[in-house]
């Protein structure tokens, strides 16, 4: 994969926190590239730096050193408004705790990122929303509030919301961690289907081997460093090392 074809690339990225007077290297120098349309798993044990890397890719955290490039844009040095714009145009988020807005219905939650941009939605966007809600199987629950939904249903709303602006990349931080295994598998299956259907790049963190096995591209982290970077071939269980 060439640098130009990568939708996400990290180059010698480091993230250091101060814990009192002690420096903590959450990410100690990570480089990798991800291709468009990939279904990417960032795996590793707790504290390995998965969430920190997802935050930096999602432009909600900045590296202490190195460079993060999103769809050709280097994120360092962008203003708050430019970063917000980049996030709303290019990125969609799925959170472990679903993070739906409690006062909005299913439909309103999905509509929310669209309204943030323009204040109103077009006819095409309305049809797109309806399709997304249908895709995640919540047409009959569209007017329900989050507290009226199960965990799986909430995560499906979060997936539809993440797709509402038709982003190129969707970041999912341990999307199945708060779900039972059956629901978790259903969610991964849904994400996979959308990935194939819409060509959206999915990058998700997990430590569940079953979910890792679903990925095209697996990046394993250990102590803030890339321990394994594999382009997986799920069909025969084999794989090859990625650059």
């Amino acid at each position: 994969m060439t640098e130009g074809s990568a939708i996400v690339s990290l180059d010698s990225v480091k993230k250091t926190y101060m814990l009192g007077t002690t420096e903590v290297h959450a990410v100690a120098g990570v480089s990798f590239s991800l291709a468009r349309g990939d279904f990417v798993s960032i795996a590793g044990p707790s504290g390995s730096g998965k969430t920190t890397i997802l935050n930096m890719i999602g432009c909600i955290d900045t590296p202490s050193a190195g460079e993060v490039r999103i769809d050709g844009t280097i994120t360092s040095g962008l203003s708050d408004d430019e970063i917000t714009g980049l996030r709303s145009r290019t990125l969609g988020f799925i959170f472990q705790s679903f993070n739906l807005i409690p006062v909005l219905s299913v439909r309103e939650n999905v509509e929310f990122p669209l309204l943030l941009g323009k204040g109103k939605v077009s006819k095409e966007q309305e049809e797109w929303m309806d399709r997304l809600i249908e895709e995640v199987g919540l047409t009959d629950r569209r007017e329900h509030r989050p507290y009226e939904l199960s965990g799986g249903q909430r995560q499906r709303v979060a997936i539809a919301r993440a797709l509402a602006t038709n982003p190129r990349i969707i970041l999912a931080d341990e999307p199945t961690a708060n779900l039972d295994s059956k629901t978790g598998e259903a969610i991964i299956e849904l994400m996979r289907r959308i990935n194939r259907e819409f060509g959206t790049t999915f990058i998700f963190s997990t430590h569940d081997p079953k979910i890792v096995a679903e990925a095209d591209h697996v990046i394993r982290l250990k102590d803030g460093l890339v321990a394994e970077n594999t382009l997986a071939r799920r069909a025969n269980g084999g794989g090859e090392a990625a650059k």
């Binding site: 999602g58 909600i60 708050d80 408004d81 917000t84 996030r87 709303s88 969609g92 988020f93 959170f95 705790s97 993070n99 807005i101 409690p102 929310f112 990122p113 943030l116 941009g117 919301r161 993440a162 602006t165």
Partner: peptide
């Protein structure tokens, strides 16, 4: 804070 953080993450500006 989680709700506000989510709004910011998914495109909500400071003004919003």
């Amino acid at each position: 804070t989680a709700e506000i953080g989510t709004m910011r993450a998914i495109g909500g500006t400071r003004n919003f």
